[in-house]
Write a protein that binds this DNA or RNA. Structure first.
Lengths: 180, 180, 180, 180
DNA sequence: CATGAATGAGGATTCATTCAT
DNA sequence: GATGAATGAATCCTCATTCAT
C-alpha cells in the first residue's frame, strides 16, 4: 500500500536528525531545512507545523516510555514499579526536550502519539492505584498532578545540574507519600 | 544622591505599569512604550535591555521577599519559618512571572537587585541551617538546589491549576525532609 | 487518430472535474491533483500550463457558444438573434470564470480552441453586420469592441448581484444602438 | 499638534511614488520598499496593509472626484452634469487602478476616505435623482448598479484600447436611458 | 532628555515546477 | 505514462534596536 519511497524516508530521517541537533523548544524550520541540506518545502511537506515535528521527534521516546509503563504495570513490587517508572520517565523527559510539550498537549497530530499517550496514562494509572493502596502515594494526588510534578522536577534539573536528577527524584518520591 | 527628575520618575512609573499589564516573558518594548504613552527611545533610556526591565519589575517583589526572608530568619519556630518562607517565595514567584529569571540570573544589572538577592540568600541560608539541624531538611540539599526545586514547583503549578499550589508545596516540604 | 488510452482519458476527466470544483482564476495545480486523486506530474503531463487547463475547462463552454453563434447566424430575426446571442454569451461567461481569459487570449494552446473562437467570431460578425444594417447597432462599433463590452458587463455583474444580469444586458443592448 | 516629522513625510511620499510606479492590483510591499529605498518596516509603519496603501494612493484621486461630484450636483444642466460626472469618474478610475477597489470596498481604513466616498455618493445621488426625473436614466437603476456599470466599462476599456473610453461611455449613457 | 521613524534581519509559509523513482 | 517528493524563490509580516530630530 502506502509504499514509502526510499528518498522520502531518507529526507525524513535527515530532518529528524537535524532537528535533534537543535535545542528543542526553538525549532526554526528554515534552519532545520538548511542543516538537513534540504529545501524548506520538503520540511513542510513532512511536518506541516513545528508541533508535528516535535511529535515525530518524540515518537521514539514515547515508544520507550510505553515499554517502561507496561513493565511497571506488570511489575509485582509496587514500590519498585513506581520508582522505576517515574525515574525513567524523568530521564526520558530530560533526554527529549520536546517530550514535555507533547505529553501536555491536548491535541495530537498523529493518532499513534495519541494512542501511546493513552496507553502510558492507563498503565501508570494502574501502578498509581496500587501505590495509593500501598500507602506509597497520597490519595489526594491525581495522575495529572503527578505528571505536572514530574515536569516540575524536570524543570528543576534543567535549570541546575544533570547530577541533581536522582536527588530531586528522591525528593519527589518522598514528597508524594502520605503524611505519617 | 543623583536627584531624579520628576518627569523621568513619572516616565519610569508609567513604563513599569504598562509592563506589568502584559504577561511577563513576552515583553515587546514597542508595545510597552505605546501603552505607556511614551516613545520607544524613552523606554530604552530607562531600561537598556529586556532583562533590565524584568529586573525593575521584580524589584518590588524582591523587596517583599527580603522582608519575608528576614522575618523567617528571626522567627524562633524553625519549622514554621521554613514553611512560611518557601510558601511565600512560591507565591511571589507565581505572581511575578519574571522573578524566576531574575533569581536565577548570574548577572544583575542593578546593584540593588544584587544586594537584595544576596540578603535573601543569606537569610534563607540561616533558616536552612537551623532546619537541617532540626532534621527538617536533608543535609545533602544545598540552598541552590532548594531554590531550583521551588522553581520546579512553580513550573508544575503553572502548567496546571493555581489551586495546586498548596498541595505541591506540601509535597515539596515533605520531600526535602531526611528519610526516616 | 491517436488512440487515447482509456486510463489517460479517465485521468483527464478527473482533472477537469476537480478543476471545475474550484473558483477559476486561482487554480492551484497541486490542489487540483490532490482532489483528483492523481499526482501533480500527471496534471502537468495533460496540461503543461495553467492556461492550458483553463482552455480545456472552457472547451465545453466554447462548444455551446459555437452552437449559439451558429443558431444566431441562421436566425432570420436579426433583433432576436443579436439579443439572444449576447445574452447567452454573457450567461456562459458568468458560468465559466475562465472563459473571458480564453476569449481574450491571442495565443491558444489547442488548435480546436482556436478554430472554435474563429467560428464564433465569424458567425457573430455576420449577425452583427445584419444588425448594423437594421440600425440595431452603431456602425462605429467593431466586433472586438462589442466583445470587450460584454466582458465589461460580465465584470459589472460579478461585482454586484447575479440578478443584475438581465438588466445590465438590456442596458448594453440599448446602449449599442445608433443614436436617434 | 500632530507635528508630522519632515523625514516621515518624505518617506511617505517616496513610498507613494514607488507604489504609483507599479501596476496597482499587485502591490508587493517588499518591492515598494526596495524601490523607495526604504526598509520594509518603514512601509509597514506607514501602511499596515496593502489596502491601506491602495487607499492612500487613491486619496488624491478621490479628492478630485469629490470636486467633480460637487460640481455636477451644482450644475444646472442635468444632462451635462450626468455625462460629465460619469465621464470624469471613468477617466479617474482608469488613471488610478486602485480606485475601483477602494470604491467597492465596504471597509475603509481611513475615515477621510469613508467621508469622501459618502460625499461622492450623496452628490451623485442628487444628480441621479434629477436625471431620473428628466428621463435621462431608467428609474429601475440604483446608484450602486450604475457604479458597477462604470466599473464594468472601466474593465472594458482596460482590456482594449484607451481610445475606446469615450465611445464606451457613450454606449453606457445611451444604455441607461429609459426605453422609448 | 524625549521622541518615534527607520531599520532590516529573521521567521513562517506557499506554490509552480522539475525530476528521480 | 504516472507518481509525488523535492525544490527554493517569493511573499508576508514582526520586532529589537538605533539614531536623526
Amino acid at each position: 500500500m502506502a509504499q514509502i519511497r526510499a528518498d522520502a524516508a531518507r529526507s525524513r530521517a535527515r530532518i529528524l536528525d537535524a532537528a535533534r541537533a537543535r535545542p528543542s523548544g526553538d525549532l526554526r524550520l528554515n534552519d532545520v531545512a538548511r542543516e538537513a541540506g534540504l529545501g524548506v518545502g520538503t520540511v513542510y511537506r513532512h511536518f506541516p507545523s513545528v508541533h508535528a515535528l516535535t511529535e515525530a521527534l518524540a515518537v521514539e521516546t514515547l515508544e520507550r516510555m510505553v515499554m517502561i509503563a507496561r513493565a511497571a504495570a506488570e511489575h509485582p513490587d509496587t514500590e519498585s514499579a513506581l520508582a522505576t517508572f517515574l525515574g525513567e520517565a524523568l530521564a526520558l523527559q530530560l533526554q527529549d526536550g520536546g517530550l514535555q510539550a507533547v505529553l501536555l498537549s491536548p491535541d495530537d497530530e498523529e493518532q499513534s502519539v495519541r494512542d501511546m499517550k493513552i496507553e502510558i496514562f492507563a498503565a501508570f494509572e494502574s501502578v498509581l492505584q496500587r501505590a495509593r493502596e500501598a500507602k506509597l502515594v497520597r490519595p489526594d494526588l491525581s495522575i495529572v498532578q503527578i505528571e505536572h510534578l514530574v515536569c516540575g522536577i524536570e524543570h528543576a534539573v534543567r535549570i541546575g545540574e544533570p547530577e541533581d536528577r536522582q536527588l530531586f527524584l528522591d525528593v519527589m518520591l518522598a514528597g508524594i507519600r502520605p503524611a505519617v
